[in-house]
């Protein structure tokens, strides 16, 4: 034993050295570092969880956004369609209106024409009356009572049924000829 170098004081010195090292390492290194590792592990787990949550949130937001985008797109489509329909309706309406207007204008023009013709017929009639009365005066040489002779021609024309509504029935020509 002695020749191997084992002796009590040296042994105790080395043992004490080891125990001091053990105590100091435990107090100053293992405890704080193990705590720190634990804390860090927890922190990392927490931040991973948080990151997951944020990622999930982002995904949800993305989904929501896409959904809304879709909705907007669909709405726009619907709006465009309805606008198209409205335009078509408007077109139809305007067309119909225009047609109606045109018809009305045509009608009005025809009415005016009629009226003018009637006017012309009645004027013609006056002149025919005047002419016939004048002719008759020349024929008989007397001054016919103006009023009375006019009345007569008038009646005759009425009997001939001439010109009251602008139409010329067959009898009118016969009457005029007579």
């Amino acid at each position: 034993m002695d020749k191997l170098g084992i002796n009590l004081p040296w042994f105790l010195t080395q043992l004490t050295g080891f125990l001091i090292v053990l105590f100091i390492l435990r107090q100053f290194t293992y405890k704080p570092i193990l705590n720190m590792l634990e804390t860090r592990k927890r922190k990392i787990a927490e931040s991973l969880e948080y990151a997951d949550k944020v990622k999930a949130d982002a995904a949800a937001q993305q989904k929501d956004f896409e959904r809304r985008l879709d909705e907007a797109r669909r709405e726009a489509q619907v709006a465009a369609q309805s606008a198209q329909q409205a335009a078509e309706q408007e077109r139809q309406r305007i067309l119909a209106e225009a047609q109606a207007e045109a018809a009305k204008i045509k009608e009005a023009a025809r009415g005016e024409l009629d009226y003018e013709r009637k006017q012309m017929v009645s004027e013609l009639r006056q002149q025919v009356i005047d002419l016939s009365v004048l002719g008759a005066q020349r024929v008989i040489g007397a001054n016919l009572d103006d009023r009375k002779s006019r009345q007569l021609v008038e009646n005759f024309l009425n009997e001939m049924d001439f010109g009251a509504n602008g139409r010329k029935p067959a009898s009118t020509r016969e009457g005029a000829g007579a």
Binding site: L4, G5, I6, N7, W10, F11, T13, Q14, L15, G17, F18
Partner: peptide
């Protein structure tokens, strides 16, 4: 080296 003195290995082994 302390480990080349037989006392330290012996102390560690005993512990």
């Amino acid at each position: 080296a302390p480990t080349s003195d037989i006392n330290l290995p012996l102390a560690l082994a005993l512990v």
